[in-house]
Structures are given as C-alpha cells and as structure tokens.
Design a protein around this nucleic acid. Structure first.
Length: 892
DNA sequence: CTGTGCAATACCACTTTGCCCCCC
DNA sequence: AGGGGGGCTTTGTGGTATTGCACA
C-alpha cells in the first residue's frame, strides 16, 4: 500500500516520505516472534499435536463450496461461545463472506492456470506463498519434535542393547583410536555427557599407561570415526525394515480429492499407506525403536538416536519437502493412476487418489507386506550428521537410501541434492535442509548439500529467496529481508553458545561459494549474456532515461539472428552510458540545464495531469507528431543558485511560493523554517515570506505541491521560531484542556448511565436469573465476574473500581439531576466523592494519571488534572438523561 | 539442448501547482 | 463572516522484468 498522505502540508513531526516510497516494504508474511525462544524445551511436548506424516495438504484457502457452510457455522459457534466483545461478531461476518467470493473465483482460476490458459493472479500467488510458508513451519516443528524424541534415554537404551557384540567391539576400537579410552580398560557403558568424557580424559593423562600417548587420537588411518560410521550404517541398513511410507511432496491437488482424503482421514481408520505413518507420541516412538521398523524417515531418526546413544554428537537432518509457491509442473500433484499402472506391484503411494473423480483408487493391498516403500524417491529426506570429536568436521550419514552412506567429501555430500529426471518425477526438492542438534537447536545447513555449494542452485524456485527491499531515499542501497532466516531465529543456537563444530562448518562447508565467473569476457556473445552483462551493452538495451556519452566508441560488433535475418550491432561499454533527465526532473534535483546544452536524447513527453495532457494533445494536433522533450546528462547541468535576497524580500515563483526541493535552492540570506502554521505567524509578525514547496503529490490527475513551512529572511528566522514555539505551547495547552474536558464528559456520561441502570433496578426490581442472562452479554458484568474470580484475595482492584457493586447509589438521583446539582462543577464528581468515602475508590479530585492508568479498562480515558467549568448548562433541574437529550447534546 | 524472439503479464516509475466544506 | 486548514483520494501509462512457448 502506498503511503497515504492526507495532507499537503507536513507538520514537523511528520516528515514527508522521501519522494515515492517503495511499495510497502513490509514482509510478505508476518511471523509472530513471541514464541521463538530457542531454548524452549522441545522435549516437553508430549505428543505430536497433528500427525506430521499426513500427506501435504493443499491450501486451506482453496477449499470448495461444500466446506463453506461448515465454515460459517464454525464461525458463528466461535462467536457465540468465545467472544466477549460485542463488536467482533458484527465485524467478522461480512468479512468472511467477502472471502468466500474470492475463493470461488480462485477455484476457477486455478483450473485455468493449470490448463495454461491464464497466469495466476496476485492473490493466487499470495495464497501459494502463504501455504508454502505455513507448510515449511509445520515441517520444521515436526522435525524439532522428532529431534526431541531422539534424545530420549529409553530409546538410547533400547538401541544400545540391540547392538551385537561385533558392533560393540567396533565402537570400543574407535573409542581407543579416538583417545577416549585406553586399551586396557573394559568398555564402559558410554556416558552421555561430555563432561564425563573430559573428566575421564584428564584421568587418563594422570594415570601411568603403557601407551605412549594414551589420550591422543590415532589419526594414522584417517579420522577413525569414518570406519565406525561405515560399520554402523551397514548394520542399520541390514537391521532396519522399511514398513511404511515416509514424508514426501505431492503437490497441489484438486479440492475434491483433498476433501475426500480429509474425510477419510477424519472418519476412517488410520491407514499408514493412505494417511502416512503416524507416531503419536514418544511411547510409540520407543515402540518403533524396539521393533526397528517404520518409514525411511523414522529409520534415519532412529539412526540419529543410535549415534547419540553412542555418545557421539549427532544431528537429525531433514530436507523439507514443502508445497511450493510456484506455478510450474512441479507443484501440481501427479495423478497416481499412471504410477500405479506402472509399478502396481511394488510401489504404493500414500494418498493415492484420482484427482479427477476424487474416488479412492483400488490399491494393491495384497502386496502390503512386501511393499517397498518410497523406492521411487532416489534421495533421502532425513539423514544424520555426525560431528567428529577429533576434527570437529561434520560427516553426513545416510544409512538407508544413498549407495554411499558416509559422505566424507563435498562430492559425496552433493549426492544428497535431489537432481535428475527421477527426482523431478518424485517431486523431490532441495530448499531448506535443517540440522537439529541434541540441545534442541536447529541450523540451516542447505549450503553443504548444494552442488558446488553455490546459491541458489537447485533451491531456486522452491525456497523463498532473500528479498531486496530498496531503501527509500538511497538509490542502489537495499535492505535484505530473508524470510527463512527469520523463521530460523527461533530455532538457532545462541551465538555465544556456538561450538567448535559450528565454527569449523561456518568457515568451511556452510560458506557459500561465489558462482564461478563465466569464462572471462570474450566467450561468444549471446543476446542474453549481453543483456545481463554489467560491462557491455547494446544500444537497444538502453532505458528510456539512458543515453550514450557523446563520442562513445563501440568496443566490437555483435551479430544477432542467423542467416538472412542476421543484423550487426555495435557493442558499447556500460561505462559509457549516462543517466539523463528532463529539464523539469533536473529542476526537482535543484539543477538547471547549462546554456546551449544539446540534449543527448529526445523522448516522447509523458503527461499525467490533465493540464499537461491537454497541452501535449494540442501540440500533437498542431504538428501531427508526438511532442518530444530533451534529456540531459548530469554534466550538462549546474546547480541552481538563486540570487541572494535583498531587503528581506523573498523571491516567489508564478504560484506565489518558492521551490525548495533541495537546501541549495534556498537563496543566500534566507532560511527555510519547515514548521507548520508558520504562514499565520509571519503574517502576524509582518515579515515577508514564501511558502516552501518541497515536492509534489499526485492523485486524481493532479499534481499537488507539498508545502513544508516557509522561507524567510535569515534575520527573521529566530524571531519566527520563537514566536512559533510560544504559539505551539499555547496550542498544546488548549488541546490539553480540551482533552480534559472531553474526559470529564465521558466519565460523567458513564456515571449517569450507571445511575439510570441502578434506578431502574430499584424501581422495577429485577429477576436475578434474568439479570444473569442479560449479564452474559454485558462486558462490564463479565469483567466483574472475572474480577470476582481472580481478585477476590484482596479485592484490591475491585475496591478501587468506582463502578463496583459496593458503590452505593442511594440519593444520587438515579440518573436524574437533583435540584442544584446541575450548576455544580460536575455532579458526577460528587458521586465520586461519596464513593471515595465509602469504598476507598479514587475521588475525582485525586484522580491522577497513575490511579486510573493502572486500571486497564480505563485506557484512553486519561483523567483530569484540574476541573474546568463546564460550559453546558442544560442539565439544571430534573432533566432526564434520555437518549434524546444525549443525542441533542452531541449534536450541539 | 540451447539460444532467440515473441507474447502475455505483473509490477514499477514517472508524473510537476485543486476544490470544497467546516471550523475557528 | 470569511479565511484557512483539512479532507478528499489511491491516477494512468509506458517501460521493464519475467515467464512460457515455439522454433531454429
């Protein structure tokens, strides 16, 4: 939304936006930071709130007509039961209806887009982006929960006990080689804390030992952890059985098919093949650890647990597979029909629905026991990163999917990056790769798995890119907004707790490499390479306001097109391109065209305002051709230096004001006082002035000057400023008084209302049940109840509330003014005084900022400091305060 | 397979001096 | 009574970037 500038005149507190502000630089998605505590103990989460293994769902927003009725009912229910404020429901309902319309349209549009008939609209793009962002965050949290489970001591115990002797031996061998144990010692059950390790290490040093250097790692055969990891990975591959489908990206589906899936998910029994694997809580996680079976994903998670059980630093790595935000084929769900036909015997796809009919496909259930899940996914989605305790290097390990399970070199690491036709068919992507550590923190390690560690690489189009927001007022300077980084802020490890491993990888693996420059400059020119070149340019690429410096020589020639269509074009240096502007534009920069300068370029005049348009049309009519204007380069212009003022007289332009676009346009001997309301003061003081035009506003086919204060002679500057300060102080005082009066009136109205209510109750009595019924909609009654429940301990707040039950209404007129009261300062205040006496409430006289400010409900009703005379006298005598009288009063 | 040209689309930047009503 | 301040309103168009597609 462009900044809304209601005023042409800016007050000093309200500086004008620098020229045209960039479109709303606000982030496309608002993320609530409030819960982003990186140290929040994720292990506290008792179970997954929603099954993370549900197949990715299409945006909620594209739900179809059938859902809408439900939505309405939900909303109404919510309003009835949850809303305490009376304003919310009335506001909310029409908004929902608006949304419905949009959604209906969206549905038809999506089908058009899928047919390639139409591009997506802005709102459709937004829905996809939001869906993507939401999905990313859900996946991220899912992984964080799994990571917390992986820390479970019982899971560790289960996995350790399952290790056969041969593996135990390998572990011991490694511990010796790594210098953690000395050979003589019997292998102890590994301690889980590093502290223990260090303590033991020290002990080893102290002890007499046969080994020359017992605590030193043996690096003679490379890092000894690598053979251990290889053994462990081989063991895992052999032992772990893949019995369920894992997470995967399906893409966006038709509403009907999603609804069918949802319906079955809610109503039917849980079918892992259809709804994805479900591990509801830690207990079930322990159970799959015991059985050593599950999806590939769980396999990788349990392997990470095994690594941690062996006292190694292991991270759970997840390559998120979120729904995308683009409109390519990769985002459309592939109907499983063909796949089923292809490999009906081997592959069972989770969520196999015919997107056309929404009916469930006949699945090869007979083969369930032998189904090889996710065989069509050539790359892992979860794996493990192990930190070598010796080198502090990270070694990725994928025991279940890749042919080479232990990725020791960058080449092997790049094998994790999904690529090729098979990955494309399976919709496997790389966009966000996160490593979750044992301490609950997570880290973006995508760079490690990108081929050549070059951004954006394969993440292009699947990961929200860093947004460059131009800084207002500074050309060429950008503020970089990285949505995902902001999301990660809640998960990242505190900078002051960074480990050695962090240090090593931040400087190495995670350091993105600059894309290799495309071989020097002299590779055969293509139109595209020239278009993107920062060094060379073709004349036809020059923008409207760009021109070649006079005398610029072409560097070489470029032949575009082939055969008969071939065309030779000169290639120029970008350095020879200069930016040009019209005389008017230069004027706005405080510069004018030098005498006799010849424009470097002539372009058609762009007229926006009606007047200019008319002028241009007339000219075109006369001459028969488009009127042109000349553009000049910077070196053809000079500063506008207005002549110094004489006798305190300020020169004015045709419109009676002075152009003040830049400070240099203020004449010598004059001063710009950009304060509001200075015109009147100047008139009063009798000094010559001119209103200062600092820019223009455009709207309704008009250009409106923005006026900021005045320009006066320098000798009058202080005089004017002083006068302005005095006036401003007076004005502030007036406003304070006015506000005070308003506040008193509000209090007064409030009290009258209460009196009326009280009197009605007194006179006509009240059925307590009916009262309660009515009170359920009365915000004050609700608040009162709330206080009774909450604050009954001391009654502190309740007692201070002048509208409490204890307030005694007798003899206050019950909403009617008693004789003689009306001409009192404010009858409401008398009540207050009485109240003060009885229940220690704040008396109006003592109402101070603090006493009322404490009461949250009174916000905005800042209390009186002194009591002004009311200037209304219409309330003397018995004047019932009815709606009519109130309206009359408000009306004036 | 890659580069080019075209078309469709979205978004951005440029544009340069009122009018009327109500309150003070 | 009249002067001045504030509210009104969110333009329109050409250029440019981007994307997808057809074709060489």
């Amino acid at each position: 939304m462009p900044p809304f500038l209601p005023r042409k005149r800016f007050s000093s507190e309200d500086p004008p936006p620098a020229k045209r502000q960039a479109q709303d630089p606000a982030q496309p998605f608002h993320i609530d930071d409030s819960d982003s505590d990186s140290d929040s103990s994720l292990s506290d989460v008792p179970e997954e709130s929603a099954d993370g293994n549900i197949t990715p769902q299409a945006p909620r927003a594209s739900d179809g007509d059938e859902e809408e009725e439900d939505d309405d009912i939900d909303w109404e229910d919510a309003i009835d039961t949850k809303t305490t404020s009376a304003t919310t429901p009335t506001l909310a309902v029409p908004e929902i209806q608006d949304l419905e319309l949009t959604l209906d349209r969206e549905e038809t549009h999506v089908s058009d887009i899928l047919d390639g008939k139409k591009g997506p609209s802005k709102i459709e793009r937004l829905i996809r982006t939001q869906t993507h962002c939401m999905h990313v965050q859900c996946l991220l949290f899912h992984n964080a929960i799994r990571n917390a489970w992986i820390n479970d001591k019982k899971v560790h115990e289960i996995l350790r006990q399952k290790l056969p002797d041969s593996i135990q031996k390998e572990v011991k061998k490694w511990r010796i080689a790594a210098g953690i144990e000395i050979p003589e010692r019997k292998p102890e059950p590994p301690k889980s804390k590093k502290k223990g390790k260090k303590a033991r290490k020290k002990q080893d040093w102290d002890e007499e030992s046969q080994r020359l250097e017992p605590g030193q790692p043996d690096m003679s055969g490379g890092d000894p952890i690598i053979p251990l990891l290889k053994v462990l990975a081989a063991y895992w591959r052999k032992q772990f059985r893949i019995t369920a489908p894992g997470l995967r990206k399906h893409g966006y589906r038709s509403v009907s098919s999603i609804e069918a899936i949802l319906k079955e998910f809610r109503e039917g029994d849980h079918d892992p093949e259809l709804h994805g694997e479900r591990i509801a809580n830690l207990e079930e996680f322990r159970s799959v650890a015991e059985r050593m079976q599950g999806s590939r994903d769980v396999g990788a998670q349990l392997f990470t647990a095994l690594i941690r059980a062996l006292d190694l630093e292991g991270r759970l790595v997840g390559s998120l597979q979120p729904l995308g935000f683009g409109w390519t084929r990769a985002e459309i769900a592939t109907p499983p029909k063909t796949e089923n036909a292809e490999k009906a015997d081997s592959d069972v796809e989770a969520g196999g629905f015919d997107s056309e009919t929404g009916s469930e496909q006949v699945r090869p259930k007979a083969n369930k026991g032998h189904a090889q899940y996710d065989k069509d996914l050539p790359f892992p989605i979860y794996w493990t990163e192990v930190a070598s305790p010796i080198t502090h290097q990270i070694i990725p390990v994928d025991p279940l999917v890749l042919p080479n399970p232990v990725a020791t070199t960058p080449d092997f690491q790049a094998a994790f990056e999904p690529r090729g036709a098979k990955a494309e068919r399976a919709k496997q992507v790389i966009c966000y790769v996160l490593a979750h550590s044992a301490d609950g923190t997570a880290k973006d390690v995508t760079t490690r798995y990108l081929r050549r560690r070059t951004w954006p690489g394969k993440t292009k189009g699947f990961r929200i890119p860093v947004e460059k927001i131009p800084q207002p007022g500074r050309r060429g300077q950008y503020f970089e907004y990285d949505w995902f980084r902001r999301i990660m802020r809640g998960y990242e490890r505190n900078p002051d707790r960074k480990t050695k491993v962090d240090e090593v990888e931040d400087a190495g693996d995670l350091q993105p490499k600059q894309p290799e420059k495309k071989k020097a400059t002299q590779t055969a020119d293509t139109l595209q390479s020239l278009r993107q070149s920062t060094e060379f340019v073709l004349e036809r690429f020059l923008r409207r306001e760009e021109a070649l410096r006079p005398g610029a020589e072409p560097v070489r020639t470029f032949t575009a097109g082939r055969g008969a269509k071939a065309k030779e074009e000169p290639v120029f240096r970008r350095a020879d391109v200069v930016k040009c502007m019209s005389a008017e534009s230069w004027h706005k920069e405080g510069r004018q065209i030098q005498a006799g300068a010849v424009p470097l370029k002539r372009v058609p005049i762009r007229a926006v305002t009606l007047i200019r348009k008319r002028e241009v049309d007339e000219l075109q009519h006369e001459t028969g051709e488009k009127p042109m204007q000349g553009l000049y380069a910077l070196d053809q212009t000079e500063f506008i230096i207005p002549p110094p003022i004489e006798d305190g007289r300020i020169p004015k332009n045709d419109y009676g004001n002075i152009d003040c676009f830049v400070p240099s346009m203020v004449p010598r001997g004059a001063a710009h006082v950009p304060l509001p309301g200075t015109v009147r003061i100047c008139k009063k003081l009798g000094i010559d002035y001119a209103e200062a035009v600092t820019g223009f506003e455009f709207g309704s086919k008009m250009a409106v000057p923005v006026i900021q204060g005045v320009v006066v002679a320098a000798e009058n500057e202080d005089l004017l400023k002083d006068a302005w300060r005095i006036e401003a102080a007076e004005k502030r005082k007036r406003e304070e008084l006015k506000a005070e009066k308003r506040i008193l009136q509000t209090w007064r109205k409030f009290l009258f209302g209460l009196r009326i209510a009280e009197r009605v109750r007194e006179e006509y009595g009240g059925d307590p049940d009916a009262d309660r019924e009515r009170d359920s909609h009365n915000p004050f009654a609700i608040r009162k109840k709330h206080q009774e429940v909450q604050g009954s301990d001391e009654g502190h707040e309740g007692a201070e509330d002048p509208f409490e039950e204890s307030y005694n209404p007798i003899d206050h007129g019950g909403g009617f003014l008693l004789p003689g009261e009306g001409d009192d300062v404010d009858d409401g205040l008398i009540v207050e005084e009485d109240h003060d006496r009885t229940s220690k409430g704040p008396s109006a006289k003592h109402l101070s900022h603090d006493s009322v400010g404490e009461d949250e409900e009174s916000e905005g009703l800042s209390p009186p400091i002194s009591i002004p005379e009311p200037d209304e006298d219409d309330e003397s005598g018995y004047v019932p305060l009815t709606r009519n009288t109130r309206r009359r009063r408000r009306g004036g």
